[in-house]
């Protein structure tokens, strides 16, 4: 299905056109959900936050002036909401993340093609999964400002410019935080994946 350009989509949203809203959600839901999931680290929480993000987009669409790309504005809302959720959960001493094994199972259920382990040997597959789990846990161990950047850059492949606009920090800061985030992540993985 061909999709209308973001500018037309925004106009439709500003006119409270439900079709435009549905199209916007269909277009961005997986990217937004994936980003929030890797920041928050819990599928149910990510589902809730993603819904809140789209509600916020519709509620505040009149304040979108078009200075940045719509997707950048959307990611800005998504990362802010995800950060707020992390703070909320930490205030509640929310320590329990979704069972990693169950998450991995659901990954295969939701998007079997993206994993691409079908041809791997069982032991390689298990090692791959273990590394994924350790890396995801490592991301969750990062401070929120590093976590957000490493997810936007390495998971979502956003440019420095887009990340800079979404997080409202200079590009140099994006780069320095990214470098440090990766170094911390590497230390975490070395510590937890030696076996």
């Amino acid at each position: 299905m061909s999709r209308r350009p973001d500018r037309q989509l925004v106009r439709g949203l500003q006119q409270r056109d439900e079709d435009a809203f549905e199209e916007m959600v269909e277009t961005y839901q997986h990217r937004v959900f994936n980003t929030i999931y890797h920041i928050v680290g819990d599928r149910e929480e990510a589902k809730e936050v993603t819904q809140e993000v789209f509600i916020a987009v519709f509620k505040h669409i009149d304040s979108f002036r078009g200075d940045s790309k719509f997707s950048t504005w959307l990611f800005s809302i998504a990362t802010n909401r995800a950060k707020n959720r992390i703070k909320y959960l930490s205030r509640r001493d929310h320590k329990q993340h979704q069972n990693i094994q169950a998450t991995t199972e659901s990954k295969f259920d939701d998007n079997p093609d993206s994993v691409g382990h079908s041809s791997a040997k069982p032991d390689e597959e298990a090692m791959g999964r273990e590394l994924e789990e350790v890396i995801q846990a490592g991301i969750e161990s990062l401070k929120e400002k590093y976590r957000t950047i490493v997810v936007l850059r390495d998971v979502e492949n956003l440019s420095y410019k887009d990340i800079s606009e979404a997080l409202d920090v200079p590009e140099g800061t994006v780069k320095s935080r990214l470098y440090r985030a990766r170094s911390k992540l590497k230390s975490y993985v070395q510590e937890h994946y030696e076996s």
């Binding site: 439900e18 809203f21 549905e22 959600v25 269909e26 839901q29 997986h30 937004v32 959900f33 994936n34 999931y37 890797h38 599928r43 990510a46 589902k47 993603t50 819904q51 789209f54 509600i55 991995t104 990954k107 939701d110 998007n111 993206s114 994993v115 590394l131 994924e132 890396i135 995801q136 991301i139 490493v150 390495d154 998971v155 492949n157 990766r182 992540l185 590497k186 993985v189």
Partner: peptide
């Protein structure tokens, strides 16, 4: 490690996301 992050399996939103939001 960096490749591991880049290749993390992508998470799909639940199929009823749009309906629930509306």
């Amino acid at each position: 490690v960096v490749d591991g992050v880049r290749n993390l399996p992508r998470q799909s939103a639940p199929p009823d996301m749009s309906r629930n939001v509306r």
